[in-house]
Design a protein around this nucleic acid. Structure first.
Lengths: 250, 250
DNA sequence: TCATAATTGATCAAAAATAATCAAAATGAA
DNA sequence: TTCATTTTGATTATTTTTGATCAATTATGA
């Protein structure tokens, strides 16, 4: 049994049990304790395990948790209900865009077990999907630490090189006249992702419906499907403009 | 049986079993052990397999991805000393590359108050520099959750569009013969960043000096400055190959 | 705290595997 | 065929790996 093979075996046992003893490894593998000790020393040097007296332990992944938190405090229940409904439309094999808004972020929890590819410019989304079956593609460019997202020319060029079956986006406001953004960056990003998608899902809780801001960046034709907990008169108007509206109840 | 036929047979056995022994191959193929050894040496040189004592392994069997948290826990003090020295060379206005290694990551703590631009493919680096005076540019592409980094074709293209005054990089091993990487992704990334930088700083703790791995990706000419806590005979050899060596004490 | 037991690191020797050298055999061209 | 080249196998020195031994260190319980 070579060193490489023993390394494999030790890591396997470690993964399964969390810790191992030298005595036990020596008999299990069929080599002397001195050899096992040498193996463990070498592996510890490479950071594959943590050496203890008489054995070794797994190095905890929790030493330094890298985290990009999303502080989406408002209207959480509505956002979750909207995203739960939107996730039902996502099927294995899909390639989807998720933008850096607090609404689209809530979609992550519902897609963790799907076999899809997610393209995003949101750091919290990447963080949230890290330990899932989803493959992640991160848009490159300048990092906006306030928004915890990537933007800039390079980012929009990057988006332009991809194509997705569905895009899950948010806006600052949506009214009959069009779509409103909170910043030019958000507007550019939304446009870039929408133009590269077959089907654009707009995720808007009730507070966004009818709201306008200083920056109207596009008319409603950008949107294919609106998912919302709102149920007022504007909804029929959106419908008449070619948007399918998925209503959810909170 | 010709060399080509034997090569084919060995690869077949390797594919099926994952590993082979020289003794076993010699009897199976009907040639002497010396010949088998010669075959394996030649194949290993071409990267078709990994040579072990008494046999060979499939490269894919050998690769054991080590998580970022694991690597980060090793030789912390040496890494900090190295990065502290390296940071002294970074001046306001610099544009620098930082790679996704655990050594270069330790550089973050020393540059938080500098007015520089950092281009990186490392998620922990972005996280660490979030609340600092540094402007961050994140490389886009596929996210590798084990290494906590971005890689892939898109990433290397992205890097090629930038230019930096300095690059702070790590390797798996550095010896007189050249630079060794832990994976092809790491190799591609290191090359991409180095080629777009005026000055390449290689950050290596003592355990990396003289170490080799299965993947040699470049000779030493890539490196301008080596920062290390190692002080042995190899250092003068590096010096004679045109590398400036900055020695630090832990 | 101290004493006892267990574990470790260091050194050394044996065994196995390898690299290097050289001669024999096979191959191929003139 | 003959000569040169390549390939193979035997031999030997060197290196690597492994296991044993023992002093030094560390953990544990009285």
């Amino acid at each position: 049994m070579t060193f490489q093979k023993r390394t494999h075996k030790i890591l396997e046992l470690l993964e399964h049990h969390g810790e191992v003893e030298i005595r036990q490894l020596a008999t299990e593998i069929g080599v002397s304790e001195v050899t096992v000790r040498r193996d463990l020393a070498s592996m510890a040097k490479d950071g594959l395990l943590y050496r203890t007296h008489g054995g070794a332990m797994k190095i905890s992944e929790l030493i330094k948790p890298v985290s990009f938190a999303n502080k989406a405090a408002v209207n959480l229940k509505a956002k979750d209900a909207i995203c739960k409904r939107a996730a039902e439309d996502i099927i294995d094999g899909d390639v989807i865009f998720i933008d850096c808004g607090s609404t689209a972020f809530r979609l992550c929890q519902f897609i963790k077990n799907k076999k899809i590819k997610v393209i995003t410019n949101s750091l919290p989304v990447v963080n949230e999907l890290q330990h899932s079956t989803v493959t992640i593609n991160l848009i490159g460019g300048e990092v906006d630490t306030t928004r915890q997202a990537v933007h800039g020319t390079m980012a929009y060029e990057h988006i332009a090189r991809y194509h997705a079956s569905k895009a899950f986006l948010g806006v600052d406001g949506i009214a009959a006249e069009g779509l409103y953004a909170g910043s030019e960056h958000e507007a550019s990003n939304t446009l870039a992702m929408a133009s590269q998608s077959d089907c654009v899902y707009m995720l808007c809780d009730a507070s966004k419906i009818g709201k306008t801001s200083y920056l109207k960046f596009n008319d409603l034709s950008l949107v294919d499907i609106l998912v919302s907990d709102y149920n007022g008169p504007e909804v029929t108007e959106f419908g008449s403009k070619g948007i399918s509206v998925l209503s959810v109840t909170v």
